[in-house]
Structures are given as C-alpha cells and as structure tokens.
Design a protein around this nucleic acid. Sequence first.
DNA 1: TGAAACACGTGATAC
DNA 2: TGTATCACGTGTTTC
Lengths: 504, 504
Amino acid sequence: MDHLMISPTSSSSLVLETPPTLQQKLQFLLQSQQDGWVYAIFWHTSYDDNGNLFLSWGDGHFQGNKDTSPSTNSHNYPILTQLYNERRKVRKGIQSLINDNDNDNSIMDHMSSNGDLNDAEWFYVMSLARTFPIGDHHHRGSYSLLGKAFTSGTSIWVNSKHELQFYNCERAKEAFMHGIETLVCIPTSNGVVEMGTDVAITENWGLIQQVNSLFGSDLIALSHTKQPNPIQFFDDHNISFADIGIIAGVQEEDNSTPTHHDKRKRSETRDNDISGVKLGSSYVDSEHSDSDFPLVTASNAMLEKRPPKKRGRKPGLGRETPLNHVEAERQRREKLNHRFYALRAVVPNVSRMDKASLLSDAVSYINELKAKIEDLESKLEKESTKKVKVETADTTDNQSTTTSTVEQTGPSANGSSTSSSSSSSVEVEVKVMGADAMVRVQSENTNHPGARLMGALRELEFQVHHASMSCVNDIMLQDVVVKLPQGLRSEEGLRSAILTRLEH
Amino acid sequence: MDHLMISPTSSSSLVLETPPTLQQKLQFLLQSQQDGWVYAIFWHTSYDDNGNLFLSWGDGHFQGNKDTSPSTNSHNYPILTQLYNERRKVRKGIQSLINDNDNDNSIMDHMSSNGDLNDAEWFYVMSLARTFPIGDHHHRGSYSLLGKAFTSGTSIWVNSKHELQFYNCERAKEAFMHGIETLVCIPTSNGVVEMGTDVAITENWGLIQQVNSLFGSDLIALSHTKQPNPIQFFDDHNISFADIGIIAGVQEEDNSTPTHHDKRKRSETRDNDISGVKLGSSYVDSEHSDSDFPLVTASNAMLEKRPPKKRGRKPGLGRETPLNHVEAERQRREKLNHRFYALRAVVPNVSRMDKASLLSDAVSYINELKAKIEDLESKLEKESTKKVKVETADTTDNQSTTTSTVEQTGPSANGSSTSSSSSSSVEVEVKVMGADAMVRVQSENTNHPGARLMGALRELEFQVHHASMSCVNDIMLQDVVVKLPQGLRSEEGLRSAILTRLEH
DNA sequence: TGAAACACGTGATAC
DNA sequence: TGTATCACGTGTTTC
C-alpha cells in the first residue's frame, strides 16, 4: 500500500477519454523528481450536465513519503484501504452523490477533526471524488486553485502552510488541513496536474517543464478547451484559438507576434515556455529570493479575441523590448499578488477579500499585536522585577529596545548591515586565527537567526568546529568557530560575506 | 521672534502678483485652527526662463509650537535670526544661486546633521529660497508634493513621519529630517498652501475648505492655472474649469454635501456636486473610517498636461460613464496607495521602498510579532506558575532550569525516543519539557549538519532558545533547546519531523 | 445598469 | 543599456 494507485487505466474498467499512459506519466513524474513529492493527480476537463466546464479526477499516483516512516503509511489505517477500494468501485456513483462541494467539505472536515488520520494519504484518497468548476462564478481567488491554474494557464506553486491556508480555495484549505505544505497546479492542454507533499519544496522550473513535455502532447478532447459560452469573434471557426495555441506550442515552437495583450485564456502559455524560456531567466525574485512567487509560465498572446481593430503590428516596435516589458510587468504583478496572498495568510479576520481592506486590516492587526506585546512586556517586566529583586537592570534595557523596534525606522543609520528585510540590527564580528576563525553574531531573535547563520556558513563552505547560540530577551547571540578554506583570510571580507548571506 | 514673518508684502518692497492680504490670510489660517500648526507657506506659481511652470515662495507665516517650549524657539539661535534677515534681504539673489535642488539639498543635509538646529524653524526659514518644478518630468511621486498637489488639484495630507519619509519627494524628506510630522499641501488657483507641524494632526476637511475659501477668491493671474501646453478640450474657453470650481466652492459655501468627503478636486467634480451629487454618496470609505486616505479633493484630469495624442474625444462616449470609470480607478489607486503608506508607517525596517518588499516585510514583521507574543505569553505563564510557589516541582523545575543548563540535562540514556532508525549514522533524540523541547542530534560532520538542523528547525518554526554544537573526530554533536508551537508535543512526532527534514 | 475590484498593456523614470 | 518600479487608462467580471 505504499504506492497507492487510483487509476481507472490501471485497474478499473471505466473508460475515460484519457490515454492509457496517464498513470505511467504520473508515476514517472513522481519518481524522476528527487524532491519528496507525495502524490500527483491529473485532473481532466469535462462538461457537467449544464454544459459547464469542470475538472474531475483523471488519474493519480500516491508515492508516500520518501523516508517511509512506518507511522505514516497506510497499513496503519485498514479503514483507508477499505474505503479506498469501496470508493474506487463506486466512484461514479459517489461522484454524483457528493458532487456538491458542501457535502464533501463536511466529510473532509470531519475527517480532519480526527486528529490522527488527517495526513496526505487521506487527502489523496478523498480527492478522487472531488470535482472543481472552471471559469464559473470565479470571484477572483474564491474558486479553486485548479480552476485558476487552468483558466489562467499559469502554474501555481504554493510552498508554505501559511500561504496555503490563506487561499480561499477549498482545495487549498483542505490540503492545509491534511498537512500538505507544498501544492503545485500545472495546467495542461486538457486538465491540470496537481502535485503535493507535506514538506516545503521551492519552485522548480524544471518540474513544470517536465509536466509540459509529458502532458503537453495530449491533444485529445481539444474541444474541452473551448469556452462553454461561444466566443463571438471566432465562432465561425470550429477550432478555438486556444487550441491553435496548443498545437502551435507542440509542433511549432514558435511564438512571434507578441505585442498585444491578451489575457491569454490559457493554453498558449505553453508555447512561450518552450520558445521563450530565456525570459524565465529574469524570473528570479531578484532581491530576497523568498521563493514566494508563482512561477508563472505565462505570457504570450496572439490567440486572443481581437476586436477587429488595428490589424498588423504596431510600426517600429523592436518586438523584443516591449515583449520583455509586458512580461516583466506581468511578473511584477504576479509577485505583488503573491505577496498579497502571503499577507492574507498571516492576517486573521480579513474583513473583505479586496486588497485595500487587506492592507488596512493588516495595519490594524499589526497595531493590535504591538499593543499586545507592549502589554505583555510590561506585565512580564513587572513580574520579573517583582520576583528577581535586585537585578542588573540590563534585562529591562534590552526589553525596552526590542519593544520599540518601530522607532528604529527613522534614523536607520546602522552601520553596514541594516537593509535586511527582516531583522534589524545585526552585528557580526569576525576574528581570524590561522586557518580557523571565530564568528560572533548578535541579532534579534527573529527569522531564525541560527538557521540563517548556519545557512550562510554552509554557502561559504565553512566547516563548523564549534558553535553555541543563546537567546536572552529576544537577543540571539551566536558564537561559531569555523575552519576556513584557504585563500579567504580577510576579516572584513569574511564579515561582509557573512553579513550579506544572513538575509535569508 | 516667536512669530516669524517672511513676507514680501509686509516689509519688503518687492512687488509680486500676490495680493497684499496673503500674509494676513496665512496668519488667520494658522490662528483659526486649534491644532498645533507650526507654519504656513503659500507657494505661488511662476514661469522660469524656459517657460516652465514652477512654484516659489509667495508668503509664509511661522507660528511656532503652541506650547512654545523655550528650547525650540528661535531666540536660542541668534544665528537663525541673522541668517533669516540676511536671506530675506538677498532672497532674490539667493534664489538664483541655489535654485539648483542639489545644492540646496546638500545645505539642508548638512544642517540636519547638525543635531540641534534641525527643527521646524530651520525648515521654515530655509524654505524661502526653495523652488519646485511643476508638471515637469514628474515621475509620479518623485517630484515635489507641492507640484503634485498643484497639478493634480488634490490636497495631500501626510501625518506620520513614516509616511513622510516614504515619499521620494525632496520636500517631504527634508520636512522629515527637520522633525516635521504633519505636512499638508492644498492647491489653490495660483499656487499651493503648505502647512506643517511637528505633531501628528489627522485629516481635517474643514481646514482644506477654509483654505479654499480664503485663497480661492484670488482670481488674479488666472493664466497660471492654465497649463503651459494648451488643453485641447477647452482652449476655446478662456476660463478653466478649475477656476469655475473655485468660484463655485467659494460663493456656494458648499457644505451641503457632508456625504461625499474628499475626493473631487474642485472644478468639475464640484459642478458634478451641483448636478448629480448623489454619485458622491458612495465615496465613503465604507468600512473602517481610518481616515487614512488622502483627502484628495480631486478628479478633474482635464487640467492635466495631456500629451498631444488623440485629438478630439472618443466617438460615442457618453462622457460620464467612462469618465467616472477612470476617476473611480484613480480613486481606487489613491486609496490603495494610502493604505500602503499606512502599512509602511507601522512596519519598521522596510528594506526597500517598493511595494513588494513592503508586503513581504510586513508579513515577516507580523510573524515576528506573533512569535514574540507567543514567547512572551509562555514566559508570562511560566512566571506566573513559578510565582505560585513550589508546585508539583518536577516538571516545572525542569522547565525553568533548562535554558541555562542544557547540556547536563540529557546525558543520553533517556527513556523515550532514541532507539530506532539511526541508519545513516544520524541520531536524533527529543525530550519535551512543557512548551520547550531539547533536541540532540549526533551525526557525521558532513554536509553541514549544523545548517541542516537549523534549517529543519526553521521549517518547523521552532524558536531556538539555546544551541551548542561541537565537532570532535568528525562526529558532530548538537544540542538545541527550542520552543514548541502549541499542538506539537509528541516526542516521537517531533523526532521524525526533524529527521525527515535533516536531509537537505 | 452602474459601482467596485482586478488585471492588463503601456509609457515614463530611476538606478 | 537593461532592469527595476510605478501610475495610468482601459476592458472585464463580479454583485
């Protein structure tokens, strides 16, 4: 049971329009990645009775944790196997029964309240009865991540529980409840590939490309990609531009004709992935590589409903600079949006889903937190001073400085360091002693200074001989003795090298 | 010297186009406000040699602090009086000398580095030599607030130092450096009224209205309100809408309209007020009336420099719907931006001034605050339980002592944990003590075990209280005391969670 | 039908 | 020179 397979192609007699190699593709996909992906699901597009497009289970592969710690495997849950088999048998029936999301949600919720059973396996198994609408009443973020990925044609990569929790998307919330930490949705021509795991995995452009090449050639059921409601511009043609985009992406490699915006329905994005990958080189979140943004594959154009206006390209455009510009702007927007999501994830009680409300809610929330901290600190201080009788008084000093982190913003004026996004006032001392060096770092105890310093030392490939870190009153003091590689002996150089690496 | 008056109308023979009552108006303005405004300046429009519009000193009134704390008054700075008089005498000469902003900035900077002298008085006095371009190379925010207020026709009200610091506007920065906290720029027909003080004053619509009625009737030099480049929509009429707006605002007393605050820059909006006021009713910043947004009076857009693009209006436009749309979008943007400012105001150490950085900094700051609160709460709880005298003794005692005596606590052979795995020569022990836990990891000194462990703890969001790692004979021994988030208390669970995360 | 909220492409600008 | 950010006007999609 280590490798669950819920596949209509492998063991079921149900006939679906997906080619028989889907299962192998997913399997291959999972096994070719060295990251600890737990499962992969292919959601394919279908039409419901009303003619609305939706995503339903196409195929899936469950790999489990790489370490296969015994407690997380399914043999501990015989009921799981039973339910799994049962579900598989009557999947079609169940689907019609619990197509309604609310019902399904209640099931999930009940399961998650169960404490021990809410792991990725449950999530995976329960997924096979789920469906997700597409393009319908999507209130901008309220719909499923899967649907969003499909309609927008952009891959979505969420790799923190906070962010996951934020999305007011049912699936993301459920994933969060079941311990999923990284959730990826990659659109294909006729569906979406979803992968998930319970650890954090940073964005991986290669994976998306691999999915593209694996699933991009499924040119079956192209009609699915067409919009349910007729597009007035091209309904005389039977092939939607989206389809053309797909085809072009597969066999044409091309691109050309950027310039005009689009809104790119989806699909087409892929051809840009192939042809214009270099654009992706600038994708990196330049400054702090928080890796918090979405790896949008997107862009392109050309297959857009075009009000019969100006035909032909604008005169005199070099064609690459403006394209980069729009692409860059797109990325900027996407990045900004993901920052917004991240903010939503940490701010509770967001009154309304719109950005302005979020921002002011964040402000008031921060003020709330500050007030609470001040309150607690004064309380604590009172307690401690009451209890510790005669103290050296530097504790209160430290406390007061940490409380007033706000005030630091004005002058800033901290030597070197500063500028780090997270913590302020980082002090680094380096003392070189022959082939060894002693590094002393003093900072606030925020953003895991220990991990940051150790990460910095790892990046610099310094072997650690000894280290000791202590945190008192929110001040973290770290002393490390490292062995230096030869050639690097300047104390100031070491210091700045460490300093610059401390910011993530 | 309590009331500095730098007025060409009161004591100078220079003839300017401002009416002789300017000084009294400013004076009246300051004294009629009960808020502690320190100074008021009227900047009037002029053309430089190149025919470009710019703002220069029209008149000013310095009132000083209401509390008139002796240390902040000018008699402490005889040099100030001297320089003031000197400046006043040779104002025109100085203007031509230090018209260059860079020079002036350096002067201001030098002054501000002076510690004691950089108060509002200095700022006020130095202002009289300043000029500010209008409508030229306006990078939207990089130009002066004054220019922005004038061209946009919107009043700008900044009432926090953070926000002030943010603007990449020279004047705002200078004001910040000189201790100004609230800075207001109110456009008039032929200039801008600027008021400032070193305390925070919330937006006051009445003040803006008062300025409008005081300075709105200066219908002299109307041509100044006209853009240097002709406005194609109305250049057959000689009266700009702005002026009409002013007149209407003056003699109409307006009021009525409590409903629609702000927004609408005089002119067009005002005539909208007359005809279709109800539209403004929905302007209210519905939910929280933080009053955090900009009191833009504006709209208009039609006295904006309009690059000679499309001549003639778009065909078939109803003229109100699309216009309202752009206006609404403008307002939305403005609102959003002010929310951003507010967020900047409460988030310390904003690494860079751009929105994306602000957002992620806000997120990490919130997490910081949360962590700190949790920490404080647990600390407080600990304190209080400790204070309840000798309780059950064992467990609580251990908790209190762990921080300092980490290494002694577990000389291996602890009952729980241990045992299993340890295949790849990495052993993990976990001992939970209340809200804290001790983690001991023994492994080979390869692949930077310190960084791996710290990274794992960061992923799990465990705050490190104390850590010590030593390497002997290529064996790395690490002991860490961490604070656990609530809900995670199982030693075995912790152990496996750490173990799985140790492999990268 | 219009108000509100977004995303998009575009031009400007700063480092 | 490219590579950022930003604001603007516009089209679209909600309710």
